[in-house]
Design a protein around this nucleic acid. Structure first.
Length: 481
RNA sequence: CGCGGGGUAGAGAAAUUGGCAUCUCGCAAGGCUCAUAACCUUGAGGUUGGCGGUUCGAGUCCGCCCCCCGCAACCA
């Protein structure tokens, strides 16, 4: 049996889940469901990234024990999954899981054995106001934007570094041999350019006495791993690596047959397609098979931010509309690879046009015609996806796959207007009935192809088709005014 | 000349290797009554950011310019 492995990146639990995470996990779920329906054995991973100074700081600020703090956030992310209609068998890894920590340590040990880890003095930019380390990109004019009255302190400490620079050439050769390693191609070009420009080693640990919230570095009591290093290992620790070799090789793959598909946002291009791959080289493990990079969801034309107050809460969207309404929007209104824009108004417009008036209304009218014609049951007959639709999903073109389905919705509406079976049945019962059966078959076609996209809705339609004797017609998506 | 993405109807998008500028929403008129005030048809709406070039033919290829938006290393 073919194996399919897909993973999202794991969100950092320093704030509530936002719609960007919902996008990523729904995209992964659509692909996982598709491969499952194609008869493959699927391993689907998501989870939470829970170490690091930021989280530690936030917990201290809230006056909570750090583990208690991350537990409550992890629960929040976990609670979102059923709200989004994610496959219940999804693996949810937490980087504070005991097994993950052991796996991260083993990974470190292997990189160290390859001679890729060394100690060097590192200059940390530290904001006394936040009591946190700051990155260059967080600073505005060399100052912390939250504490512009304070100077940034430079603190020197000895950290472990990873020899990223050693793997530049190796990465370029790997990219050349794997022509669709990063999807879409413009992102692949971006990362190639970045690697070509030359790589610098990056720090992978912090002094424990200053920042204790991390995985202990093997063989050095004084240091903990920097959050990235341990977090990236989740993609394989989730499979039971290093102990469960069989599971690891079946799903993550082998050197000859890599099998791990990763989905990530455009901000994660470097970490996933360069840094993590170099780490895998170093540890002597198979690379990912593909890294699929999606865009961002903006809100009203601007980046979502707390200060602008335009953050979209996926829980709220689901509660107002429905799980499948949100899944529809993420699948069809978002281009898989470009940025999209969310506004309540556009969401509602699209909901009414495509779900209420389009799909929902079509199901109503066809089932009513069937009921009126005395057709009580319908034998399901579709067992495979359309070839064009398959091609789209195999190339991660979720939007196009959804377009294909709604193209069918349109065709069926047109057919009804052209053939007028509701009229025909009054003069020629046989011909009218034949038309209606044709419509029912197309409803099945639509429902079948909706399974990965809107699983709940697909199921409702398929169930309704099989028993129309009760005369009750599901109202899938009521109009919202 | 740091790297990259983009500019197509009021809005959002699409257009293998150059070949009738297409689709959805919205708007107008008509049709239909199976349906969730829904559905179908037709129509209005365009200097494809600008200028120039190649070509029988350019949204597409080449040159220059203008304007948006990311990234610029340890930020998911």
């Amino acid at each position: 049996m073919n194996k399919f492995y897909i993973t999202t990146t794991i969100p950092y639990v320093n704030s509530d889940p936002h719609i960007g995470f919902a996008l990523e996990v729904v995209e992964a779920d659509i692909l996982a469901r598709y491969h499952k329906l194609m008869g493959e054995e699927v391993f689907f991973n998501t989870g939470t990234d829970e170490h690091g100074a930021k989280i530690h700081g936030k917990a201290l600020e809230a006056g909570k024990d750090t583990q208690v703090y991350v537990d409550s956030y992890a629960a929040r992310f976990k609670a979102l999954l059923p709200k989004l209609g994610i496959l219940p068998e999804v693996h949810f890894i937490r980087t504070t899981d005991a097994h993950h920590k052991q796996a991260a340590q083993e990974f470190w040990t292997r990189c160290n054995a390859s001679g890729d880890i060394y100690k060097k003095e590192y200059e940390i930019k530290y904001c006394v106001g936040c009591e946190l380390e700051k990155t260059d990109s967080e600073l505005v004019d060399g100052k912390c934007p939250l504490h512009t009255n304070l100077e940034i302190e430079i603190r020197k400490e000895e950290n472990y570094f990873f020899r990223f620079s050693k793997y530049g050439q190796h990465l370029l050769e790997f990219y050349a041999d794997n022509k669709t390693f990063v999807v879409p191609d413009f992102r692949f070009n971006e990362i190639k350019k970045f690697v070509e420009a030359g790589l610098q080693d990056f720090s992978i640990s912090r002094l424990k006495e200053k920042m204790s919230w991390g995985v202990p570095v093997p063989g050095d009591e004084t240091q903990v791993m920097y959050v990235w290093f341990d977090a990236l290992v989740n993609y394989i620790s989730t499979l039971g690596w290093p102990e469960d070799v069989s599971n690891f090789e079946q799903f993550w793959g082998t050197a000859e047959n890599s099998n791990g598909v990763q989905i990530a946002g455009k901000d994660n291009l470097r970490q996933q397609s360069a840094m993590w791959q170099a780490m895998l080289f170093s540890a002597g493990l198979p690379n990912s098979k593909q890294v699929v990079i999606h865009g961002f969801i903006n809100s009203g034309g601007q980046k979502m931010s707390k200060s602008l107050g335009n953050v979209v809460d996926p829980f709220k969207v689901v509660d107002t509309y429905s799980t499948d309404a949100l899944r529809y929007w993420l699948a069809r209104e978002m281009n898989m690879f470009e940025d999209g824009d969310f506004t309540e108004e556009k969401f509602k417009e699209s909901y009414n046009a495509n779900l209420a008036n389009g799909l929902g209304n079509l199901v109503s009218r066809v089932l009513k015609m069937a009921t009126n014609a005395g057709i009580a049951d319908f034998r399901l007959q579709i067992a495979d996806f359309n070839a064009e639709y398959k091609t789209y999903l195999e190339h991660y073109e979720i939007q196009k796959a959804a377009d294909w389905v709604w193209g069918k919705v349109k065709e069926v509406d047109e057919y009804i207007a052209r053939e007028e079976p509701f009229k025909k049945i009054k003069v020629d019962a046989e011909a009218g009935k034949k038309d209606i059966e044709y419509l029912l078959a197309h409803l099945e076609l639509i429902a079948y192809h909706l399974q990965p996209l809107l699983p709940d809705t697909a199921k409702k339609i398929l169930i309704a088709l099989q028993d129309m004797s009760t005369g009750t017609i599901p109202r899938l998506f009521p109009r919202v005014e």
